[in-house]
Amino acid sequence: MDFVLFFLTAAIALAGAIAMIVARNAVHSALFLLLNFGAIAVLFLLLQSPFLFTIQLSIYAGAIMVLFLFVVMLLGAEQVEAAQDKLPWQQPLALVMGAGLLVIAMITAVRGGSNDAPPGGEAAEAFGDPASLGELLFTKYLLPFQITGIILLVAVIGVVVLNQQRNQAQTEETPGERPSSSVQP
């Protein structure tokens, strides 16, 4: 049953990924990517990582992809590739390079990963408990954890600053109009 679930989910993930880069419409791309993220979340669950499963859902699916959709809709940037390609020779070359990269990555994956099933047993049962992850976060990885906090803070400030300037410019252009209340999450 594990194999059935895996292949099903993997197929969905692959289909979502391919469809994402093929889709002409950016909203469709976002939806296919969402599908892919959902599939990967399920794979996390299969890998005994329920915490990451929920994180994947709430951060990637719930926040990041919503942001993407939001920006696409706000900008009306669903289809920007209608114009003629300025670098027509780039695409085939990119495909060749992609193929090369794929071959390298797969060789590495086959050589690096073990073909046996991962270990089971009592240790495997306890594995993936959010408590153990949390403990590691606050002991061994305390410093990186704090740094990610600072990164988030910096990101928040950066976004606010970027927005702020735009709002000011708008206000100057059309005096009297109230700058639209930010919809920045």
């Binding site: 329920p50 859902l57 709430s58 699916a61 719930g62 926040a63 919503v66 408990d129």
Partner: peptide, 15 residues
């Protein structure tokens, strides 16, 4: 064991 987080995650997908 991550029930509460599950609730939050699904809530966020509802959008």
């Amino acid at each position: 064991n991550v029930g509460v987080l599950y609730l939050l995650a699904i809530t966020s997908i509802g959008v």
